[in-house]
Design a protein around this nucleic acid. Structure first.
Lengths: 201, 201
DNA sequence: GTCTATACCCGGATAGAC
DNA sequence: GTCTATCCGGGTATAGAC
């Protein structure tokens, strides 16, 4: 887009720093959550001062919004890159596996729906909601298709499956297993997928 | 315990007020969460002033701790009152149903494990942890028994089932269904139980 | 663009009158 | 025991020097 190469360098460095800030924000968010995350935490983790932070993101809400947008973009990319030959259930399973691995790796659960504060903030974020709607449309399509093919329970309303699916991507059992059982990440993912699709029985 | 009746009246009124405060705290907590709940909110909801609140509970942490202890006591009572003739899976199902109904009724999810802040605070709360350990022991017993009888998946580690069970008691899908689908509470409970025990398939 | 220093606000907790 | 008024810490955001 830019036709002046001189600006490219600056922009490049700027983008790099922005990336580092988002990484730091992601790490702090995943350990302390939104309300307890302070801008000092993020600035400290990046190794810059707070005012410099505000040169990149004009508020805490914007910073967190961008971090979550990046996460959703990752999910959208992952879905787009899936083998089109896969069945709907395999796709849903693969994406859930991806989301669980991201979290086990210190990343964020998407849809940090738990905090009313955060939820309200994100709903006001048009850029974020755009991604949510797009991802939701694709997932809803997969669920409906799977139900028609009899691969997912036809008795259950699509909403129930879809919302429960989202809930599994941020299931707190993951953290508990990671913390209190000595289970390998591989096994946690495997078990969580099993429980999600087949239940406890 | 008290041998002076004169004090009984005062104590009775005191207990009543305390009950009202805990009700208010529960309501505010369930709608705003811990971090966004202010002592002004609670005082306002009860109709008393903030200093009066502090006559009953010496800090925000203590207030919230007591509200959650009351909740756990409710769960423990419910479990104790269950027909001993019921099988372990029926008991687990009944308790999960109870927990979901409490939430749909404006109550709290037990184990608000989501917020690291709250979790840390509760772990320091001996009175609270006592209840958690007691309840956990009973639930773990039920899960193991059910696995031995082949009523719950033997392949899954007990921890996985137990933590996932806790996660279902605070599954955010409940709120989403209540808010975005026009489903009756009865149906939400029924579907959530089905998904928990039998999965999406 | 980066820092130091600061304005400003809000929420937890308390002093002191009644 | 209840209220009004206030303290104080900490967190967001910014002013202004370099």
């Amino acid at each position: 887009m830019s036709i002046i190469p001189k600006l490219s360098f600056k922009n490049q460095a700027f983008k790099l720093r922005e990336h580092a800030i988002l990484d730091a924000a992601t790490a702090v968010l995943s350990s302390k959550g939104y309300d307890l995350m302070t801008m000092d935490d993020v600035a400290g983790a990046v190794g810059i001062s707070k005012p410099s932070l505000y040169k990149h993101f004009k508020s805490k809400e914007e910073l967190v919004g961008e971090a979550l947008i990046r996460l959703l973009d990752g999910a959208l990319e992952y879905v787009a890159a899936l083998d089109p030959g896969l069945g709907p259930v395999d796709k849903l399973s693969a994406l859930l596996e991806w989301a669980l691995r991201v979290r086990l790796d210190g990343g964020l659960p998407f849809l940090p729906s738990t905090s009313p504060h955060v939820r309200e903030m994100l709903i006001r974020n048009v850029k974020y909601m755009l991604r949510v709607v797009k991802l939701n449309r694709q997932l809803e399509g997969m669920v409906k298709q799977a139900q028609q093919q009899g691969l997912l329970d036809r008795e259950l309303p699509t909403d129930v499956i879809l919302f429960s699916y989202y809930a599994r991507t941020c299931d707190p059992a993951v953290e508990y297993l990671q913390k209190y059982s000595k289970m390998a990440d591989e096994d946690i993912v495997r078990h969580m997928l099993k429980v999600a699709f087949d239940g406890f029985r």
